[in-house]
Design a protein around this nucleic acid. Structure first.
Lengths: 341, 341
DNA sequence: TTGAAAGCGATACCAA
DNA sequence: TTGGTATCGCTTTCAA
C-alpha cells in the first residue's frame, strides 16, 4: 500500500494541490468551506505530509543532531533524554551520536548529519580540528555548544559554570576541615574538566591551601580508571583526606578503591563527584556531588538553536548557568579534625 | 553559500547528471575515463549527495528509529549506544525515542518516524493498542522487536531468554542455600519482567520451594521504587533471605533499603539484579546480576531489519539468546545456612 | 556509453 | 480565492 500523497487528497477533494498545501500550512487564502472539505478528506485518507518532500523544497527537516562523547555514559544519557524531550515538544526528533572523542568519528558524523540536512546541531563534545572544519565546510549548520566551552568555534554556547562548581566543591571540603586534597580529572581535551580543576584550585589557594601538580591525576572516563587513579593516590605516604572527582564515574571508582584499601568513606576519606547522575544515589555511601542544571541548559540551548536567525541578532551568546552542590553521604570532616575540637 | 548539487558537478565535468548519478551509485555504464574525471570534480567541489533528494526518489533514508522506555535509564542507554554503533557501521543513523511506556507518546513517535520515512524501527518497549495500530496503519515500516516478547504484533523479535535468566538467578540462590525468597518485579505491561518472574518461580518450585503471590512486589522502574518495595519486604516478620530484582535499578534500591534497615548484604540478605548495567559495578556490594548479550541482540536485530525483504523469506523469526549470570558481591549463603554445616 | 526527460511529493509564485 | 506550473536534487527509464 502506497502512502497517501497530496495529489490523492487533492483529487479526492476535487481541488488543486495548491489549496491542499495551503490548508496544511495555514497559509494563502482558502474559503472556509473548502478548508473544511479538505480537512475532512485528509482525515479520511489518513494523510500525513512527507517530511522528505517538504525538506527538499527548503523547509526544515525537523531533525536535530546531538553530539556527545558517549550516550551510554549516564551523564550524557540524561542529556540525551532531556534534549529529546524538549526537542520533541517543538516537533523535532534528534539523532544522537557518540563520538568517543575521536576526531574521525566526529567528522564522519558531522558530514552525515549535514547530508541529512539536520536543522541544527547540539554539541556536547570537544570537536578538534577536523570537527570544526567539517562544521564550517560548505553550508554551515546552526550550532549550539552545551556543557562545553566554545573551543575555537564561534557558536552560541550554554554551559555550567564549571569553575564555580569546582570552587563549591573546594569550599565544601575546606569548610569540613580538609587540608590535604587531591583531584581526579579528565584529559586536557575535556575543557570542562580543566575548568573544574581551575576553580577548585583557585578556591583552595584563596584559603591558603595549595594543590601540587601531582595531586591532580588525569583519568579516562570510566569507573575503572577512577579506581586505578584513586588507588594510586591512596597508596601514597601522605595520602589526601579528600578527593574531588571531575565526574561521578570517577568518584564511584574512587569509592571502590577506598573500599579495597580498607579506607572508610567518609570517615577517613571524603569524596566529591560532579554531574549528579544516578550513580550518585546508588553508590554506598551516596555521593556528595555537583549538579548541573540540565533542564535549564537544554532549554536555553534549544531556544538559541531554533530561534529564527533574525537579521540583526548575529551576536554570539554565551550563557553560563550556576551549578549546585548536593551534599549526600560521602563527605565529612577529616579524621584529624575529629579529635581536635 | 549553497550546497553543491549534482548539476554543479555535471556542468563542471561537462557531462550529464545521469552520468554523475551513475558513478555515485556505481551503476550503469560509464567509461573509466569519465568516471575518473567525475570523481575528481566531486572531490574538488566537495560534493555530498543529498540524502533528502534521493530518499524522495524512493531510496532509503538511512535513518532508523529506536523506541525504548527511557534512554536515561542505564540499560536502555547502553542499548542505544550499541544500536548506534552497529547502525553507524552500516551507514545508518538512529533517532532515539523515549516512550515512558505511554501510549500517547508511542503513537506520536511512530507517526513522526513514519513521516520521516525511517527505513526501520527497533522497538524495545511495549506498544499497546495504539502503538500497534500506528505501526500497521498506512504503509508499514519494517520492524524488529528487541528485549521484548512479540506482543500482539507480528514482527521479527530477538530477545534474551528471560525465563532462563530468572531460572539462573533462582538456581544460584538455591545453590547458596536460600529457601525464603522474594522478588521485585515491574508492571504487567513489561512482558520481560513477567517472564523473568515465571522462570524464577519455575526453578524454585522444581526445587520444592514456593513463592507466594505476595512475595513478588510490583514496582515502577526506579531506584526509589525499589528501595520502597524492598523496605516493605524487609519489615515483614518472616523476612526473605534473598531478593531477586528484575533490573539493576530495583536491585540498587533494595541495597539501599537493606542498608537503612541495618541489614547486611550479603551477610543477612542476598540480592540479585538483572541487566548488568554500570549500576551493578558501582553499588556496594557490587551486584550479582544477569547479563543480557546486548551486542548479540543488536547484531541480530539489525541484520533482520536491514536484510532486503526477499521475495520468499516472509517467515517471522524469533531469536532467543542466552543470558549469563554474573556473580559479584551481593550474594552469599543465608545466615541460617552458615551455622548448619 | 551517454544524455534528455519523466517523475518523487511537497512549496510558492503568478495568472486567472 | 483558486489552480497551473516551476522547482528542489536525485534516480531511472529510454532513445540516441
Amino acid at each position: 500500500m502506497k502512502e497517501t500523497t497530496i495529489y490523492d487528497v487533492a483529487k479526492e477533494a476535487g481541488v488543486s494541490i495548491a489549496s491542499v498545501s495551503n490548508v496544511i500550512n495555514g497559509k494563502g487564502k482558502v474559503s472556509a468551506k473548502k478548508r473544511e472539505e479538505i480537512r475532512e478528506v485528509m482525515e479520511r485518507l489518513n494523510y500525513r505530509p512527507s517530511v522528505i518532500a517538504s525538506a527538499l523544497m527548503g523547509k526544515r527537516t525537523y531533525t536535530l543532531g546531538l553530539l556527545v562523547p558517549d550516550v551510554a555514559n549516564p551523564f550524557f544519557a540524561e542529556i540525551a533524554r532531556t534534549v529529546e524531550d524538549r526537542a520533541h515538544q517543538e516537533g523535532y526528533s534528534v539523532i544522537a551520536c557518540s563520538t568517543d572523542n575521536k576526531e574521525e568519528r566526529i567528522e564522519r558524523y558531522i558530514r552525515l548529519l549535514k547530508r541529512k540536512r539536520v536543522d541544527g546541531l547540539i554539541i556536547g563534545t570537544g570537536l578538534g580540528e577536523a570537527g570544526s572544519q567539517a562544521l564550517q565546510a560548505e553550508k554551515a549548520v546552526p550550532v549550539v555548544l552545551i556543557a562545553r566551552g566554545s573551543d575555537e568555534l564561534s557558536a552560541h554556547s550554554v554551559l555550567t559554570d564549571d569553575r564555580a562548581g569546582g570552587a563549591a566543591a573546594a569550599r565544601h571540603l575546606l569548610g569540613l576541615g580538609h587540608r590535604r586534597l587531591a583531584v581526579l580529572a579528565e584529559g586536557a581535551q575535556v575543557t570542562s574538566s580543566a575548568d573544574r580543576v581551575r576553580g577548585f584550585r583557585a578556591a583552595l589557594s584563596e584559603a591558603g591551601v595549595t594543590l601540587a601538580e601531582d595531586d591532580v591525576l588525569i583519568c579516562e572516563t570510566s569507573v575503572a580508571a577512577g579506581e586505578r587513579a584513586a588507588g594510586e593516590l591512596l597508596r601514597r605516604a601522605e595520602r589526601p583526606t579528600a578527593l574531588f572527582c571531575c565526574n561521578d564515574m570517577l568518584a564511584a571508582g574512587a569509592l571502590r578503591a577506598a573500599k579495597r584499601s580498607g579506607i572508610r568513606v567518609p570517615g577517613e576519606l571524603s569524596v566529591v563527584g560532579f554531574d549528579n547522575t544516578v550513580l550518585a544515589e546508588v553508590t554506598d555511601p551516596a555521593l556528595t556531588t555537583i549538579a548541573q542544571p540540565l533542564d535549564g541548559i537544554v532549554d536555553q540551548a534549544l531556544e538559541l538553536l531554533l530561534a529564527e536567525p533574525e537579521a540583526g541578532a548575529a551576536e554570539l551568546r554565551r550563557v553560563v548557568m550556576a551549578p549546585e552542590l548536593i551534599v549526600r553521604e560521602s563527605t565529612a570532616p577529616p579524621p584529624a579534625a575529629k579529635s581536635q575540637p
